[in-house]
Write a protein that binds this DNA or RNA. Structure first.
Length: 542
RNA sequence: GCGCCCGUAGCUCAACUGGAUAGAGCAACGCCCUUCUAAGGCGUAGGUUACAGGUUCGACUCCUGUCGGGCGUACCA
């Protein structure tokens, strides 16, 4: 419809002999009395045409040729807005479209045919997933779902590194606990992992091997067991979160297949990498930074930047049109260097996109505190799901813009389990299912519904809201901001509730009951589709 | 010091990226269950959008500066 209106206006603009046609944007006004769609072109043209916007608007409107089966009224309002009203027939046609499209209603094709790789979670296996990881996990998964709804083919990947110092400390921590269990003295490593799960892993080792491992030369067997157990735990958590990864990518494989060496050699050949003080440096000053950065430390160990660049090159080599990374605010600093790196290597940096979210601040007893996996003062995602369930957990992480610092009060989250806004959406769906069950019992509806019987303001508003769904999804996908979907669903549920109070279904005569039932069915469909994208269930009863 | 993000109702957050009268949910107060689920509805109260300038027909949104918070700014990941 918006495209149609833009086209109609564009034709009318031909009368003005413009050097350059302005961008015609059609927007939905906030106030219902301002119509269903609105354009500000007349105001944009005021300056070039040296005329007042209302006069221009009048000329545009006079020159409009539109289908009055779709548009019932055109008005000029305020400083020069041109407002359109949709005709009822158009709305009924669109309502039929929703019912016909069913579970695919809302799909658009902005990313049709695109192959996308989204990398998220990517927590190293040093401990269970915490609520901090939760935001990353749910955000990444939902952005993936949104991209799928705009036609993309999306793969989800988990990137991890099991070779770093933290993993070594993890192995040493398990070793120390194991020694304790078999009754030997062992010094707990400085800065070791203090969580209870370390003891569980040690116990598992003891059950499997008895005290055989006392003779182990290093922490290796302990580390391996820890990684295995922790990954199993993470997988279970992800499954509970309804997140399914397509692949797990081990950073180490980049060393094995020579990509790290290859990357650094290419950068050297380009004159972008050089040796100094025993380290290898990346000339980031060439890309506007005030300092060069280290790629390989004098110890011979690469910094994370080097594998990050190699990894992104690898992703693009796999033929993806778009690679999305989901990062917490603390990782954002690496991003420009990675882009510079892959650009130097001849890749298109526009194919890499980053979703940055701000940190989750934990609040306990009214005071913020820092989470640390090492010190074991974290709240796990599993704890959270035990407490409030998967639906509330996902909803909680999605309801706010990724850009805001999310405050997470443990006590409040528990309370929110009882009166969470997610239930408002689910409740609306359950109500419709319930009505549908009763209607099936009490009526014997046949034939096609006469949608033109829907003329109550609450019915019309409800239809109009549903029509915004595809655009809302496209928008949310483009911005990578799932919270727009929640804002929309809240509006939809609220409009349905108004309809529910104003217009009865049971007890009305058959024709009216039938058309209202169709409206309710369409609402349920849109609620299901929307909740589905969020990974939240749409129950038939509550 | 420099860079990025944020500052909106008592609290947690929206506002379709420059549009018309800044909206929801909690919390508070007052009503509404013999009628399709009260996990609901209706109403009241709550705002100088941190502050000061600027840009323009029009600013929560863009620019400059100030204040406050978070995160970076490592040969840590």
């Amino acid at each position: 419809m918006k495209e149609y209106l833009a086209e109609v206006i564009s034709k009318s603009l031909k009368q003005f002999d413009l050097k350059e046609e302005p961008e015609i944007r059609i927007e939905a006004p906030n106030q219902p009395e301002h119509g269903d769609a609105s354009s500000n072109v007349a105001m944009m043209l005021a300056k070039p045409l040296r005329n007042n916007p209302r006069a221009i608007a009048q000329q545009i409107v006079d020159g409009l040729e539109y289908d009055n089966k779709k548009i019932s009224a055109v008005e000029i309002a305020g400083p020069g807005f041109i407002n359109f009203r949709y005709s009822d027939d158009y709305l009924f046609d669109e309502l039929r479209t929703i019912l016909n499209d069913g579970e695919s209603f809302g799909q658009t094709d902005a990313n049709k045919g695109k192959k996308v790789l989204i990398e998220f979670v990517s927590a190293n296996p040093t401990g269970p997933l915490t609520v901090g990881h939760g935001r990353n996990a749910v955000l990444g998964d939902t952005v993936a779902r949104l991209l799928e709804w705009t036609g993309a083919e999306v793969d989800r990947e988990y990137y991890f590194n099991d070779a770093g110092r933290q993993m070594r400390v993890l192995g040493e921590s398990v070793r120390a606990r194991y020694f304790e269990l078999v009754g030997k003295d062992a010094e707990f490593p400085e800065g070791g992992y203090e969580g209870e799960y370390i003891k569980d892993i040690a116990k598992a080792l003891q059950e499997e091997f008895g005290d055989e491992l006392l003779s182990a030369d290093d922490e290796q067997p302990f580390k391996e067991k820890a990684e295995e157990e922790i990954f199993a735990d993470i997988s279970t958590t992800l499954e509970r979160m309804k997140i399914k990864m397509n692949s797990f990518f081990n950073e180490h494989s980049l060393y094995e297949d020579g990509k790290i060496d290859e990357t650094i050699q290419k950068l050297r050949d380009l004159g972008l990498a050089y040796d100094e003080d025993g380290a290898v440096w990346f000339k980031t000053t060439k890309f506007g930074k005030d300092k060069d950065t280290v790629l390989v430390k004098s110890s011979g160990e690469p910094t994370y930047r080097l594998p990050d660049i190699a990894y992104h090159a690898n992703k693009l080599d796999r033929g993806y049109d778009l690679c999305v990374d989901v990062f917490g605010a603390d990782h954002i600093a690496t991003y420009p260097d990675v882009l510079s790196g892959i650009k130097s290597l001849g890749y298109d940096p526009d194919k890499v996109d980053v979703v940055v979210y701000q940190f989750v601040t934990l609040v306990k007893d009214g005071k913020p505190f820092k989470m640390s996996t090492r010190k074991a003062n974290f709240v796990t995602l599993d704890d959270l799901m035990d407490e409030v369930g998967t639906d509330v957990t996902r909803f909680f992480f999605l309801m706010r813009s990724p850009n805001t610092h999310l405050e997470f009060d443990i006590a409040q989250a528990k309370e929110a389990g009882e009166k969470n806004p997610v239930f408002y959406l689910q409740y609306a769906h359950a109500r419709i299912s319930s009505i549908l069950r009763k209607v099936t019992e009490e009526y014997n509806l046949k034939g096609k519904a006469d949608l033109s019987l829907l003329n109550h303001p609450s019915e019309i508003t409800l239809i109009k809201t549903m029509l915004k769904f595809p655009e809302t999804l496209a928008n949310a996908a483009r911005l990578r901001e799932p919270h727009h979907v929640i804002t929309f669903l809240n509006e939809l549920a609220s409009d349905f509730t108004s309809f529910y109070h104003d217009c009865r279904i049971l007890g009305e005569d058959e024709k009216l009951a039938q058309s209202r039932m169709e409206l309710a069915k369409a609402t349920a469909q849109v609620l299901r589709n929307g909740l589905g994208i969020l990974g939240i269930s749409a129950p038939d009863q509550m």
